[in-house]
Amino acid sequence: MSDATQRDTTARAGVTPMVLAEGVSKSFGSNEVLKSISLSVRPGEVLCIIGPSGSGKSTFLRCINHLERVDAGRLSVDGQVVGYRQHGDKLYELKPKEASRQRREIGMVFQRFNLFPHMTALENIIEAPIRVKGLPKARAVERANELLVRVGLADKGDHYPSQLSGGQQQRVAIARALAMDPKLMLFDEPTSALDPELVGEVLDVMKGLAASGMTMVVVTHEMGFAREVADELVFMDGGVVVESGDPREVLANPQHQRTQAFLSKVL
């Protein structure tokens, strides 16, 4: 609807990138966490971000849906500047309501699931569609049940999060994000808090999602997943993009010394 306004400025290959970062920087106090990050994700593409802890990958992800404010540079999702409204050459900070309108189009999955513990799996999924989108309850429940089937938890709708395993909780969290019909999904180390035997079930759901054409940005330590599913791999260290490219090439034949050092430790 509103992506037409800025299409001309960002059109390169004829398509508006789903995510476009140009010189994105972010500091916490004197600690510069992101130093001029530039990258783009085309619609339908899966971008995996790897790197050592503290490299700024999670912060960058959180900037994409404005959970963190960008200090410098420009970050846009589907042609819209994240967190700001552009009038001429001036930027105006968005009101909470407008920021929320942007966020509801971006699904986010957290490392520690962050399911609402006082609600059942089904209630977790229908909460935002009903409250935020104003969906009638019957429709929301119907859709939630479809999503539960999709993540393989058709019979777990009436379970509270504390009654589910970590892998099941994370799959409910994915269903919860999908219930808002996002055009972009962000995954912040979705399998890092899981027992090893539960990682596969979450990755399977994510693979299915990628195969269905969802645009995804995934911060992960799962190199196998990155190799198999990602269209593009970015290696970040110290707040900068050190190396990026085709995941199979980067993983098999890293060009940069820091990438080599990191991969030799994790592979």
Binding site: V149, R150, V151, G152, L153, A154, D155, D158, H159, Q163, S165, G167, Q168, R171, E197, L198, V199, G200, E201, L203, D204, V205, K207, G208, L209, A211, S212, E222, M223, G224, F225, R227, E228, V229, L267
Partner: peptide, 29 residues
Amino acid sequence: RPDNKEPALATGALPAAGAPDGNNLGGKG
């Protein structure tokens, strides 16, 4: 768990069988 007849089973067994879009095993190298 409300279905306390099958306490351990509820955790691990169902997801693998239930995931409809898992094209194959978890792809860990």
